[in-house]
């Protein structure tokens, strides 16, 4: 079976985010007030062949751990759906 995967990579809680801080500081100067706690991440989409959803998820988790994230500073939120 083929599954569609969405991996959202975020800096872990407590890790400083220079991009988020810069965006947060810029917002009031553009007239947007009341925005706080801005965190910037990246998302990746791909398809994967696996026997079932659990197997697909296990493969993606390993891929995230070994390559798509740096576990020292980043976490991944994984969504797996039937393609």
């Amino acid at each position: 079976m083929t599954f569609s995967v969405l991996v959202e990579v975020q800096l872990r809680p407590g890790i400083s985010d220079p991009q988020g801080q810069t965006i947060e500081k810029a917002l009031p100067t553009l007239g947007f007030d009341g925005v706080s706690d801005v965190r910037v991440g990246k998302s990746m989409r791909f398809e994967i062949d696996a026997a079932d959803e659990a197997a697909a998820r296990a493969q993606v988790d390993e891929l995230c751990e070994k390559f798509l994230t740096n576990p020292v500073i980043e976490d991944a939120l994984v969504t797996v759906e039937s393609a």
Binding site: I15, Q19, T22, N70
Partner: peptide, 17 residues
């Protein structure tokens, strides 16, 4: 070297970008 795990920690974007 940090990505290979030979050294601890990570290098991220400079404060102030």
């Amino acid at each position: 070297l940090t990505e290979t795990g030979m050294l601890p920690g990570a290098l991220q974007k400079n404060a102030g970008l």
